[in-house]
Amino acid sequence: MRLKSRHLLGLEGVSRQDIELIFNTGVTFKEILSRDIPKVPTLRGLTIANLFYEPSTRTRFSFELAEKRLSADTVSFSTNTSSVQKGETLKDTVQNIEAMKVDMVVIRHQAAGAPHFLARCCDTKVINAGDGAHEHPTQALLDLFTVREKYKKIDGLRVVIVGDIKYSRVARSDIWGFKTMGAEVAICGPTTLLPYEVEKMGVKVYNRLEAALEGRDIVIVLRIQTERQEMGLLPTIREYVNRFCLTPPHLAGLRENFTIMHPGPINRGVEISPEVADGPYSVILSQVTNGVAIRMAVLYLLSGGRLPNSRRKARAS
């Protein structure tokens, strides 16, 4: 089985079959990760460049680990400076990648569409590790994977995403992904942090957290950047906390197997209280573990290879 697309630039338009293929591959890799020597030679000889134009620890470590577990050769590049400033432009980067014969690029960039720019300009395969406010497909895939692991299905589950939807790439990818897999998705946040005509994505919109949580199975809490207040989109962080911070009282009366997710990094006390973040409903840390397995699956499938345990069979035929 192969993925339909050469690149993973976003989850909008990615089929249910492709997502399921990634899940099934992810299950195999998760098993490998639990072995004594959690490493396979699958991507030996393949060169992967991790280009992080924006600060990231979690996603970058997760990708690097996934690549190392697959025995790929990796180069990583991390910078805080935007290419808008003087220095290396994305175009230069592209040409260097070409010259160094990199097979695959993982890119995180503050500009929406930067991975598309790479995909258009060079021959290598591109994985979007978060582009501006556009998409963060592997985060959504690991969220979906974590949910599927817990509930054994995604169809019919009721999900709500809370927080800064407007500037969130995680929200967009999660909305597309959960919708494709048959979940019912709602969003909740202050009106200034909701993007234009977001309901056209097929989500129900709430402005009150209590109402949004009613009858939900899963809540995905997004990080609130203090920058939003400076931009005049929130009067104060205090008012946000009063109205949208997920606290213990919200959990009363929720379903027993309720799930709380957060893509991290967490602003404890802003979008989620510490008791809730570290409480029994939280799967935040399994999200992190699953992140490695799902990224291995994506890297592997985009490389066009076969599953490691089917290797011998493939050779025989």
């Binding site: 909008e12 929406a112 569409g113 582009d131 501006g132 406010a133 556009h134 998409e135 790439r169 967009r172 993007p195 234009y196 005509e197 977001v198 056209k200 994505m201």
Partner: peptide, 15 residues
Amino acid sequence: NESFNSTRFGLSGIP
């Protein structure tokens, strides 16, 4: 342009 498309593409909108 601020529209459903700017929402989809994650581009900040000019209304």
